[in-house]
Amino acid sequence: MIKRHNPIRPCTGVWLLLVLLTLVTYGIGEAGLGGIEVVFLLLAMVLIKGQMVADFFMGLRRVRLRWRILLTIYLLLVVSGIALAYLMGIK
């Protein structure tokens, strides 16, 4: 059998990263933090987590670019929409 791209170890690393980011998010929630910088941090983490799931869990890293980009665009649109709405709420 041809030596294939090993899908396991990177994914365990990804899993650990996702867990870590989740704990940070939870921590921020526990501390009751708010405000632009905090929210942008939270949204950045959402972007990273989402992209990780798309790339490594869904395996989009290994397919044609357009499918991966489509999901990235989706994440960007949703996250920036949320950011925009948050800013509107501050005024």
Partner: peptide, 26 residues
């Protein structure tokens, strides 16, 4: 397996956005 897996990852992805949005962002 890939088909079922992809759908499940979507369910995960949605929650990844939902949790911070509804439970944390303030």
């Amino acid at each position: 397996v890939e088909t079922g897996a992809s759908y499940w990852h979507m369910v995960d992805l949605v929650w990844i956005i939902l949790f911070p949005l509804v439970y944390v962002i303030r």
